[in-house]
Deep mutational scan, measured.
Amino acid sequence: SLNIVTVTLNMERHHFLGISIVGQSNDRGDGGIYIGSIMKGGAVAADGRIEPGDMLLQVNDVNFENMSNDDAVRVLREIVSQTGPISLTVAKC
């Protein structure tokens, strides 16, 4: 069973999320979106629970499971540009 973790980040303390995301597209185009790298000083690094290779399932109320990489990057950028905490739900691989 997948270990699902939801992390809520206070964006007032850390001014950027600090992750890159990578799409693992397979033949069907539904390989999922994964955490690529984590930048020091960002909210994700400070929290420490999300790691490279984790699968990104949801951000706030947006489901990322069947999203293309381009869409995921765009949607994540829109969410980060808003104010307030950000909740990331990942599956630990």
Results as ranks from 00 to 15, higher is better:
S1R: 04
L2E: 10
N3M: 03
I4M: 11
I4C: 03
V5D: 08
V5S: 07
V7S: 04
V7D: 00
V7F: 05
V7K: 00
T8A: 07
T8C: 08
L9A: 03
M11P: 09
E12C: 08
R13C: 07
L17N: 02
L17T: 03
L17G: 01
G18A: 00
V22N: 15
V22A: 14
G23K: 10
G23W: 04
G23H: 10
N26D: 15
G29I: 12
G29T: 15
G29K: 15
G29C: 08
D30C: 05
D30G: 06
D30N: 09
D30R: 07
D30T: 05
G31R: 15
G31H: 10
G31T: 09
G32H: 11
G32F: 05
G32K: 04
I35T: 13
G36C: 06
I38T: 02
I38F: 02
M39T: 04
G48V: 15
D54K: 00
D54T: 00
D54Q: 02
D54N: 06
D54C: 07
M55P: 01
M55N: 13
Q58V: 13
Q58T: 14
V59N: 02
V59R: 00
N60V: 00
N60K: 06
N60D: 07
V62E: 03
V62P: 00
V62N: 07
N63Q: 14
N63Y: 11
F64M: 13
E65T: 12
E65R: 09
E65K: 05
N66R: 12
N66K: 12
N66Q: 14
N66G: 08
N66I: 06
N66W: 03
N66L: 12
N66M: 09
M67V: 08
M67T: 08
M67Y: 12
M67E: 04
S68M: 10
S68K: 06
N69L: 06
D70L: 04
D71K: 14
D71S: 06
A72L: 01
A72E: 01
V73S: 15
R74H: 06
R74T: 08
V75A: 09
V75D: 04
V75P: 02
V75Y: 11
V75F: 08
R77Y: 03
R77K: 05
E78F: 10
I79N: 03
I79F: 07
V80P: 15
S81Y: 10
S81A: 10
Q82P: 10
T83S: 09
T83H: 10
G84Q: 05
G84F: 03
I86Q: 08
S87D: 12
S87L: 09
S87C: 10
S87N: 14
S87G: 06
S87A: 11
L88I: 07
L88Y: 02
L88A: 02
L88C: 13
T89R: 11
T89N: 04
V90D: 01
A91H: 15
A91D: 02
A91I: 15
K92S: 03
K92I: 00
K92Y: 09
